[in-house]
Design a protein around this nucleic acid. Structure first.
Lengths: 146, 146
DNA sequence: CCTGAATATTTCAGTGTGTCAAGCAAACCG
DNA sequence: CGGTTTGCTTGACACACTGAAATATTCAGG
């Protein structure tokens, strides 16, 4: 029950930045859902497919990466499998494990999805190369700190 | 059918920044859901309540801000109303309209939610005041551009 | 070995989010 | 007025998600 590491009160500037990040998050989300919808996928399906486009993963690992319960992954993979974008393989090393892997078609869709993200084009186009470098470093430091 | 304004191919730096923003989005989302869960709210309920903590809004306007169908808002407001965080008022100017408004308790929860967002403390704490100012301006420009 | 605990997945029931179509009431307009 | 439009709700449906229970496999001791 001991109060966690004594949380500092966020100042006005921090709250303003948080608000702006909230707006960016909303915008990113919207664009991501749109990109997914163009391939008749839901956001969750698109995220899972993107993960699998890099390498096959056991269901358990997928659940960890997506931060949800394994039982939830079952359903999402089911729907992608019906559409031929993902397949289940047996793991030769451990017969309990099922490896989910993107099919050829699945990888193709994942690439289109990545490239079709509107967010990658419009909002960042307003920034110069130098500014994007600064932004990159600030974001990196933020993620490293948290 | 005319191809939209000729989309520029995102360069490597842009894609890297997009990737980083994706990570920030995931982190923000997670923290937001956690903060909501601490008050036994879902993310959607927390977002709607936050909107109403500023001013009462007609259901129609809520749907626009949340970018979803009005019929969906009905259910979310229903659940918040049962818990006494939100109430429906009649609009004296137009009897078709129902104004959703946060109750005293609802505004209290919304404030706690805003202040309890872990994201506001940890990742931004790693940045100096000057850096947060730079970040603020870059985010503003991005949002204005898109 | 064999038994019991741990692990990986699935199934099922239940809640919330979201869409779409249909319905109702009030407002608007020619 | 009478017809259309607008604001909200309802009902049916799909998906995302959780938690508990069932199954199969692996693993660790005795």
């Amino acid at each position: 029950m001991a109060t966690p590491p004594l949380p500092p009160r966020p100042d006005a500037l921090t709250l303003e930045v948080v608000e702006l990040i909230g707006d960016v998050v909303a915008r990113f989300h919207e664009d991501y859902e749109d990109a997914a919808a163009q391939h008749a996928l839901t956001g969750a399906q698109a995220r899972l497919l993107s993960l699998l486009s890099l390498e096959p993963l056991p269901m358990r690992k997928l659940a960890q990466k997506l931060k949800c319960e394994p039982s939830n992954v079952t359903g999402i993979v089911d729907r992608l499998e019906v559409r031929g974008l993902v397949e289940r393989r047996a793991d030769p090393a451990d017969r309990r494990v099922k490896l989910a892997a993107a099919t050829e078609e699945g990888r193709r869709v994942a690439r289109q999805l990545r490239e079709g993200l509107r967010f990658a084009r419009e909002p960042l186009a307003g920034l110069s190369e130098d500014e994007r470098l600064v932004l990159r470093d600030l974001l990196r430091r933020m993620l490293a700190a948290g």
